[in-house]
């Protein structure tokens, strides 16, 4: 057992990638399966517990989990030598693994983009971290909500591609 071998470091980056991914998708599913459906049932005077305390902390771990996942994922794909082939979905390479991981990487990248460029900037307006007029807040909430739902939908095929590439294709 060699702890400084390239194979060990590749395994270590895969482990960090999975840890980061759980941090990210765990919070994504918390927002979509727990927090958002619960908000209408919470009495108005108790809502600030979510909007002022829980949501900002959850969003912190959510967006940085997304960042750590894409960074460790790209390093991992580079170390494994399939980054280039996966980016072009393995087309022409007749390699089902690279096609599968490529789809997973593209889906994950779209989701990462949604987190940093749609969900987070709009959630800052919704939560009052940056000032916004009421109608602007409403619109921001709609965009952030739909981007979050889109990511929940995409997480299902994304995980098929990721796990499939590791264990089947």
């Amino acid at each position: 057992m060699e702890f400084v071998s390239f194979a060990w470091w590749t395994m270590a980056f895969r482990w960090l990638h999975v840890i980061s991914g759980i941090m990210w998708i765990g919070h994504l599913w918390y927002f979509n399966f727990v927090q958002t459906p619960s908000m209408p049932k919470i009495p108005d005077e108790q809502k600030p517990a979510i909007t002022k305390f829980i949501a900002p902390t959850a969003l912190f771990w959510f967006r940085w989990g997304a960042m750590a996942t894409i960074v460790t994922g790209l390093i991992l794909a580079g170390m494994n030598g399939y980054l280039g082939s996966a980016i072009k979905l393995g087309i022409g390479d007749h390699n089902a693994h690279n096609t599968a991981i490529g789809f997973g990487m593209w889906l994950g990248t779209i989701m990462w983009f949604n987190v940093w460029f749609l969900i987070w900037p709009n959630q800052k307006k919704v939560l009052g971290i940056v000032p916004a007029q009421p109608d602007e807040k409403k619109r921001a909430g709609r965009i952030a909500g739909l981007a979050s739902r889109t990511n929940t939908m995409l997480s299902i095929p994304m995980l098929y591609a990721m796990v499939g590439a590791g264990h089947y294709y």
Partner: peptide, 30 residues
Amino acid sequence: MKNPLDSLQSTVVLGFVLTVVLILLIHAIA
């Protein structure tokens, strides 16, 4: 028309439908 992503249930169903599409795409390409 109502956006299917407004419903959590439809979102999950669409996720599984997209997975079937993905499986077919992987097999078609590879």
